[in-house]
Design a protein around this nucleic acid. Sequence first.
DNA 1: ATGGTCGTTGGACGA
Length: 258
Amino acid sequence: MLRVATWNVNSLKVRLQQVLEWSATNKPDLLALQETKTMDENFPLAELEAAGYQAVFSGQKTYNGVAILSRLESRPSHIETDLPFFQDPQRRVLAASFGGLRFVNVYVPNGSDVGSEKFAYKLGWLEKLHDWLKKELLRYEKLVLLGDFNIAPEDRDVYDAEAWQGSVLVSPSERNAFRELQKLGLYDCFRLFEDKPGNFSWWDYRAAAFRRNHGLRIDHILVSQALRDVCVSCRIDKQPRGLERPSDHAPVMAEFAI
DNA sequence: ATGGTCGTTGGACGA
């Protein structure tokens, strides 16, 4: 069984103990982290290695930052930290191969507000991601694309779709970009097992949003057909969101019978 | 009870 997970930790420095405890309990083989907000020279490698994880990471000061933790035997190879043909100081991409498995961790831009400069950056970024993955999927039969997509794909992924209509994270152009990724042959693991609304992965820190389950499902695990065929579970673990000093995101985990 | 927090940083920005 292969277990993979994604978690936007909103500062790895603050959340390190939660990551260690959650990993000890849930034992993911591969864990994608976003918003580490940690420069590579400050990455807590020793603590993670002591917990049995290899790590690759691509960080920067203050913002963004991605990492992959692995307790697989095979060493990570073919590591990529950028979208091809896209010069960007923002550390949002980390891809690595583990044996025959391609693992692509993304922290998609938030987009700020529909129509803003940051929104245009988000859509352009997603287009570059799409073009790259089209090629990656030709090279790798078993591919996982996971992370914080900052897109709630459908109305059932939003606590109040009417109030959110047209806003950033749910707008038609963002949802279209998400569908374009799906059209490459990438399948949303969570929706293989659950049809109902009310399942979220992010809740705003403000206004007691978590207590009221005012959330959005914006963290996703998408997989190629070969992995879809052997995917046996996918769940969002709300437990860490209820801890003291939580990340505003919950981890999402999927299992594969391989 | 109709609700404005975090993290990084050292004032304001990003989410």
